[in-house]
Design a protein around this nucleic acid. Structure first.
Lengths: 233, 233
DNA sequence: CGTAACTTTGACGAATCGTCACTAAAGAGC
DNA sequence: GCTCTTTAGTGACGATTCGTCAAAGTTACG
């Protein structure tokens, strides 16, 4: 059901998604569809939630990475970007689910589910932060809580990807590499700003990034079909 | 016309905005309304653009501020947040205008107008960056362009505000001060990460923030009605 | 005035939404 | 095997919203 909805969105855009079209593609009737989703907006949020589930899988893969905490955090940021590039429409759904025009009209159950997923995602980042604090690679002033650190990184990645995704539809050629560069660069700026050791200048970023590209996301990157091009920082 | 649309949104939410309702509130007929806006989405983007115009005014006010370049940049970030808190619905419109469901369906003329406004806003930040470079308060590695610096700051502010605005509707009490804290704190993290002098630890942030609150935004802050509470960093 | 160019109107058809009285199937009790 | 209950599924239908367009109104100007 969700798959059919995604198909329609891929083919004709979100604006063209109607319940009637969905019903036509699915071996159920309108009534049944409405038993699962209270309306179009509810469907969109459900779609977004299932997307976040796949993002979560990418995130969790980072926890198995054998490396410094800072580089793990960087890998999480990279994973976020990878997700946005692999499934630009899914990423857009994540933004879509946040605007009132949609969230106002969706069922509270699904809204709660969405909130929970958000927190689970943050939880993965939090895990890495805890590790960094224990290892002494990150030291926080009293006034800054670990939760705030996770939020800082998240806000930067979200902002960067969201702003760059706007016009990704057409000019993908231009912005394809750009997004990767900017997300890595912005993440490093934030991590440097937080004083997370070792700072960007001390590591060979190309090497680090290439390592987790190969070790964690080789399959996804191949799917994207841009593995040949190198990353310039 | 735009005012009437905003009224409806304030009273009943974006989802409840219909062309029929707008027509009922306005001394024109449907046809005339459709002469100005190609459809609902076009109206939303127009609304967003007019909001960005008022944001631009806040930004430009910062250029008159007598202080270090870093503190000016901080004031721009603050202005962005102030705007989001003064007119949460308008800020939401800025996000709304970015999602494909809306931008897909709006006229290209208005889309171009939107793009241009975006760039004008970035231009203000760019002005401050140029000043910082000239004063030697900011030094960039070869690989980082001034435009990218503007984008970094913008992405961070946008991400922070967007993520915190999600649920501002209900629990404004909790998140009211929080947003101010987080935006200032996140901006400082980015500016530190960029190596923009003098770094956060070297200035009395409370003093700086209070200064531009009084000198630039006294009126707006009064309107918000929270001028009594102090900012804890 | 008269005519042409432009603006405004609102009734209308098309598209979309979401409901609800009804049917079908599955399982429980006897 | 029969009936009753429960649950899942149906799709025609009324209501809402959208966007159009031919006709009516307005202005500009010789």
């Amino acid at each position: 059901m969700l798959d059919a909805a995604l198909e329609i969105i891929s083919e004709q855009g979100v604006a063209a998604l109607t319940m009637d079209k969905l019903v036509a593609r699915v071996p159920y009737s309108k009534g049944t569809v409405y038993n699962h989703f209270s309306g179009k907006e509810d469907l969109l949020v459900a779609l977004c939630n299932s997307s976040m589930q796949s993002l979560l899988e990418l995130f969790q893969r980072v926890l198995t990475f054998n490396g410094l905490s800072r580089h793990k955090m960087l890998a999480i940021c990279f994973a976020y970007m990878l997700f946005a590039k692999l499934y630009p429409r899914k990423f857009m759904l994540v933004i879509t689910a946040k605007i009132p025009a949609v969230s106002e009209k969706c069922s509270s159950r699904r809204q709660a589910e969405h909130q929970e997923l958000d927190e689970t995602l943050l939880g993965v980042a939090f895990e890495v932060i805890r590790e960094a604090l224990e290892a002494g690679e990150l030291t926080l002033p009293e006034s800054r809580l670990p939760e705030q650190v996770a939020f800082s990184v998240w806000a930067m990645c979200f902002g960067t990807i969201a702003l760059l995704s706007e016009d990704i539809e057409q000019c993908s050629a231009r912005s394809e590499l750009l997004m990767e560069q900017e997300v890595i660069s912005h993440s490093n700026i934030v991590l440097d700003g937080l004083g997370w050791q070792p700072d960007a200048a001390q590591s060979d970023m190309n090497e680090v990034v290439n390592r987790f590209k190969q070790e964690l996301f080789a399959e996804e990157i191949e799917k994207l079909g841009y593995q040949g091009r190198s990353l310039k920082l």
